[in-house]
Design a protein around this nucleic acid. Structure first.
Length: 471
RNA sequence: GGUCGGAUGGCCGAGAGGCGAGGCUCGGGACUGCAAAUCCCGCUACACGGGUUCAAAUCCCGUUCCGACCUCCA
């Protein structure tokens, strides 16, 4: 190994609103925490964009040489739905007539499946809120002891926002300009000392499922407290990088920061990184607007899920992005083209060279510059098209960058996944007809295959086929 | 009302004061039995009005429009 200094990864920190170097505070590993899903429904592709953000940072940091410790929570309790009466999981359990833990288990499994389809690096641990109740009790006790929290007349435990002077630093909100009366939470503020205080522990009241005994009676944890408890516990008291969707900036991360900082009496998170939201065909992706696209919807249209990954990489994480079926198809085709090119280049031996090393380091530099994936992809395209770079060097560069981008570029382009026998038979017949010069028959069979969703291409080496992307 | 982003060709989108990113679509050509794929060529855009500058999509001021967050959300 060389003694060269590692390249610095600069990321936009939401709190300071400046680029900031990502650093390991213990000199050993990067301690990363990402807010994970509430497992009451399928995660949609907008959620995936945020989860991809952590993957890009982690792949880059690993590539550069960091050890990573990455924790992502699974919220299976305590995330209240809009009316602030019912927990999201419990509401879904009722809707599906299932046990709430069964609901959580089903959707957590699907979450992991989607991550895998998108080549998103798994976290080292996925702690569940329901399994960390003791951690949360300890944290709440400590906050009460330090006078940052109090037990209300309703037997809920509240965090006292006014005891944390820098409240609002992440979101730009100021406590005095957060007007009371917003939405639902104020309606039960009778027990709270201040309208912006939030519940750390909620009394069970009429609830019978997903409740735990506690020093304050039966109840369940508030949503924000789980991330403080888990991050401090599993990352040994400090977070080098905290990730999440932009909407979590307030109130979730603001409250989490207050809780964590008050526990350790200093800044608990060095860098806050937030991913912007995704629109689909111009509209916000939300259940309420009936505009939700799942990874499984892409697969149903024969779009490679990694085309979604490529679409995301073509946009910067900090801008809102408008995804469409057209952009997904374009990305799908680009993936195909790269995979075909790689097959051709593989006729040459992969060649290590200074030229290749320089190209790769330029791409790494783009990623280190606040994850400028669009610019990095631009370089990759120009390498692909270059007349002056040899196939061997191209192969070497693509091989290295595939680890950073996670696009499985070395998979064969035409994977004959699940080709039904009768269609395979038509393919064989067509090849036969064509080799016999019976072009009217081969054209007829090509049309027939097309009707069955298969595109046939003839080349010098015979025919190849692809699934057509459906509209 | 508060805070923060945007506006780029047929479409999507990057953009670093100075040679028109790139992709998709479309048109022409090469190749092909014909297609497809691929390769080559073509299609000269930056919301509006001022300003700074030798030079502005880029910097500054103003205007219009769009969006996000402001106690559900990735």
């Amino acid at each position: 190994m060389t003694t060269k200094e590692l390249p610095v990864i600069n990321l936009f920190d939401t709190k300071t609103r400046k680029l900031q170097a990502l650093k390991s505070s213990d000199g050993k590993s990067l301690r990363i925490y990402g807010c994970g899903p509430t497992v009451y429904r399928d995660a949609h592709v907008g959620n995936m964009r945020t989860f991809l953000l952590s993957d890009i940072v982690i792949r880059l940091a690993k590539y550069i040489g960091y050890e990573i410790r990455f924790i992502q929570n699974i919220t299976d309790v305590g995330h209240m739905s809009e009316d602030f009466v019912e927990d999201k999981i419990l509401a879904q359990a009722k809707a599906e007539s299932k046990d709430p833990y069964e609901i959580a288990k089903i959707y957590e499994a699907r979450f992991h499946t989607d991550l895998k389809l998108l080549n998103i690096t798994p976290a080292d641990k996925y702690p569940k809120a329901s399994e960390c109740i003791d951690l949360m009790h300890n944290l709440i006790n400590e906050l009460i002891k330090k006078d940052h929290a109090y037990v209300g007349s309703d037997n809920c435990v509240y965090f006292s926002a006014q005891t944390f002077p820098s409240y609002g630093a992440i979101s730009g909100n100021r406590l005095d300009s957060l007007k009371p009366g917003h939405r639902f939470e104020y309606s039960e503020a009778g027990a709270k000392r201040f309208h912006a205080d939030w519940a750390l522990w909620k009394a069970a009241e009429n609830r019978t499922q997903m409740i735990w005994n506690s020093p304050w009676g039966n109840g369940f944890p508030g949503w924000h407290v789980e991330c403080s408890a888990m991050s401090l516990h599993y990352l040994n008291g400090f977070v080098d990088l905290h990730l999440g969707g932009i909407d979590l900036r307030f109130p979730h991360h603001e409250n989490e920061r207050a809780q964590s900082n008050c526990i350790i009496d200093k800044e608990a998170v060095a860098l806050w990184l937030h991913g912007e939201h995704l629109l689909f065909e111009g509209r916000k992706m939300a259940k309420s607007s009936n505009n939700v696209v799942l990874v499984s919807d892409l697969i149903a249209r024969n779009i490679d899920p990694l085309a979604l990954r490529l679409c995301f990489l073509e946009n910067r994480y900090r801008s809102q992005m408008d995804l469409s079926w057209d952009s997904l198809k374009a990305a799908h085709q680009l993936l195909q083209r790269w995979r075909e090119k790689i097959l051709i280049w593989q006729a040459s031996d992969s060649m290590q060279s200074d030229e290749g090393e320089i190209l790769i380091s330029q791409i790494v530099a783009d990623l280190c510059d606040d994850l400028d994936t669009p610019r990095a992809l631009q370089k990759i395209r120009s390498i692909e098209k270059s007349q002056s770079i040899s196939d061997g060097v191209k192969l070497e560069v693509f091989n290295k960058i595939d680890k950073l981008f996670g696009l499985d570029l070395f998979n064969p382009p035409n994977q004959s996944k699940n080709l039904p026998d009768h269609l395979n038979e038509i393919l064989i017949q067509r090849q036969k007809a064509r080799s016999e010069g019976n072009f009217s028959e081969s054209d007829r069979l090509r049309d027939l295959l097309s009707e069955n969703g298969i595109a046939v291409n003839d080349s010098k080496d015979g025919q190849t086929w692809n699934w057509l992307i459906s509209d």
